[in-house]
């Protein structure tokens, strides 16, 4: 899987590349519009991750360009605007997804994987970890050989973990993943804790060992024993 990352801040570019590299993607980078434009013209990418604000041009033009040459490339827009503007812009551009700065790397990885699953029609909609598998199309969850019923949020959280195995997911990160801009809902009640507790209950009830490990005071991690 080839990904082109266009972001003018080199430190952020480095962080993104590092994380996606570790996930096994082949990453190419560009810190400006000119080089990105060349690369888009010359090569074919599975996914383009692009920041709208570039020093020498607009990410929007890059999206128009890639829509002409490689309409099959999946596009994730990184934007510093708020979600209200993003919604409008994202729809107009034909971008597949947008993510608002600052974002967690876990969130970006989850978005990239989700986009690949959507783009890859012939591909696999089953995500598996240990004895548990999720079908992202039918939203069915199998624990061992038993099907378990999850609520919308529980499914979203589990899929988020499955997209980031062995990575610490902070409570904030999980809250932002399921609630977006409403993540501050988690401030007063431990909603995340309740969701995780319910998830664990349902998984262990199916006779499968709970793969969600608490990382003290910070969050949780999907890990096999």
């Amino acid at each position: 899987m080839k990904i082109l990352i266009v972001e003018d801040n080199l430190k952020l570019l480095e962080s993104i590349t590092e994380v996606l590299d570790a996930e096994g993607f082949r990453c190419e980078t560009s810190a400006n519009f000119r080089i990105a434009d060349e690369k888009v013209f010359l090569y074919d990418y599975d996914i383009l991750i692009v920041d709208i604000n570039l020093p020498d041009g607009s990410g929007l033009d890059l999206i128009k360009e890639i829509k002409i040459h490689h309409p099959n490339t999946g596009i994730i827009v990184i934007s510093a605007r708020n979600s209200l503007d993003n919604k409008l812009e994202g729809l107009e551009l034909g971008a597949d997804d947008y993510i608002t700065k600052p974002f967690d790397m876990a969130e970006l990885v989850a978005r990239v994987k989700a986009l690949l699953r959507r783009r890859n029609f012939s591909g696999n909609n089953i995500v598996t970890f240990g004895d548990i598998s999720l079908n992202t199309n039918t939203r069915e969850v199998m624990a061992g050989n038993q099907q378990i019923d999850l609520t919308k949020s529980e499914f979203a959280i589990l899929l988020f973990f499955f997209s980031n195995p062995k990575r610490v997911l902070t409570r904030e990160s999980i809250a932002e993943h399921i609630w977006g801009d409403n993540m501050d809902l988690a401030d007063s009640f431990d909603f995340i804790y309740s969701h995780i507790k319910n998830l664990r209950k349902k998984i262990t009830a199916a006779g499968v060992e709970d793969p969600l490990k608490a990382v003290y005071g910070i969050g949780y991690k999907l890990d096999a024993n």
Binding site: N9, K11, S15, V19, N53, A80, R81, K101, P102, M105
Partner: peptide, 23 residues
């Protein structure tokens, strides 16, 4: 727009690196 872009970009770096250290 500028303030937001600059602030959010650097906040993203802080978060990315903190996340890295946490892991």
């Amino acid at each position: 727009e500028n303030a937001s872009h600059e602030l959010q970009t650097h906040l993203a770096i802080i978060r990315a690196n903190t996340e890295k250290l946490l892991n």
